[in-house]
């Protein structure tokens, strides 16, 4: 062994050891504390690369678990927007009795057009109804084979946007009593039903999100449990040389954060891909209904909410798992 250097002894002699009551970072200051965090964050990212396959599997599992409720939520939001876009175009269709003449039908439509609730009105004669049916269904009706046109004349009333569903229901009831009218249909009803179903869907998505969040929590906890086992010796030595629980926890919290964050990024990517894939079929379907509706991409706020939520889940899982390990270590 080399002879002791006088300078080395002097350095050790002159440097004070930390007193018991000083806080952990009194030696290097807050800047050093931040540097330590930065270093730990970087080291924990490196940790992901030590076992890339295992890390990838964990991130995939988190991403796919989160993408399911997220996709449902985004779809439901789209459905909600679709219903909303149709709601302003609430229509009451009045199907005329077959024996009502075109003149009587037109006269009725002129009378109805004067009503305050009506924004727009369209009268379709029997012939026009047939043509519209043929063009929308693509089926040509051979009138030669039929005794007469089976379709009635129709008056389509578009209510004012300010009309409430109750106003429209009342209008429908009132108009159905007119002697010329065989049947009055309020198109809003099925939209209300759809909206109610969408509400049920939202609740289901919330429950699913909760269940899958628990899955994510357990997946991260299990992954970290294995890692903690692998680093048990390091943790014990660090505790023995004065490492605080916060110091022990820190790299695992960052690891949990990365798992959650990357899992969240994967989830939003999967959902965005799904929306992109659905875009043209939905646009085709919308055009069939004379609608300009397009699939809405995930709002930026939801994107950040997902990342925040998934990151917090990862951190929470790490906190719980390391906490359990430290409690076990203390109990020993």
């Amino acid at each position: 062994m080399a002879a002791y250097s006088a300078a080395a002894i002097l350095v050790v002699r002159t440097m004070p050891s930390p007193p018991l009551k000083k806080n952990s970072y009194s030696q290097g200051g807050f800047k050093h504390y931040l540097t330590e965090h930065q270093q730990t964050a970087g080291e924990s990212i490196d940790q992901l690369w030590i076992k890339p396959f295992g890390s990838l599997m964990t991130i995939l599992l988190i991403g796919l678990s989160l993408s399911l409720p997220l996709a449902l939520i985004v779809m439901l939001e789209n459905g909600d927007k679709l219903v909303g876009s149709w709601e302003g175009q609430s229509k009451v269709s009045l199907f005329m009795k077959m024996d009502v003449s075109e003149q009587s039908g037109l006269a009725l439509s002129q009378r109805l057009a004067l009503r305050s609730e009506v924004r727009k009105l369209r009268y379709l004669s029997k012939e026009q109804s047939l043509k519209e049916f043929e063009s929308s269904s693509g089926i040509s009706v051979p009138l030669a084979l039929l005794d007469e046109n089976p379709l009635p004349a129709v008056i389509i009333l578009e209510a004012k946007a300010s009309s409430s569903p109750d106003d429209l229901s009342r209008l429908r009831d009132e108009l159905s009593l007119l002697p010329e009218v065989e049947y009055a249909q309020l198109d809003l009803l099925w939209m209300k039903r759809l909206q109610a179903m969408l509400q049920i869907g939202v609740h289901l998505a919330q429950v699913l999100a909760l269940i899958l969040a628990l899955v994510v929590l357990f997946v991260v906890m299990n992954t970290l449990k294995l890692l903690i086992e692998h680093r048990r010796n390091e943790i014990e030595i660090t505790l023995l040389v004065g490492g605080s629980h916060a110091y022990i926890r820190r790299p695992f919290l960052y690891l949990g954060l990365w798992y959650g964050l990357f899992g969240g990024l994967l989830a939003v990517t999967v959902v965005e891909l799904l929306l992109w894939w659905l875009e043209s079929p939905v646009a085709r379907m919308s055009s069939l209904y004379d609608s300009s509706f397009q699939v809405q991409s995930m709002p930026l706020s939801l994107f950040f909410q997902v990342l925040l939520f998934s990151s917090l889940l990862g951190v929470m899982a790490a906190w719980l798992e390391v906490g359990m390990h430290l409690r076990r270590a203390l109990a020993k």
């Binding site: 440097m15 930390p18 952990s24 970072y25 009194s26 030696q27 290097g28 200051g29 050093h32 504390y33 540097t35 330590e36 660090t238 040389v241 004065g242 490492g243 605080s244 110091y247």
Partner: peptide
């Protein structure tokens, strides 16, 4: 773990 600076 005691929070010494890198230089020290």
């Amino acid at each position: 773990v005691s929070g010494f600076s890198h230089r020290d």
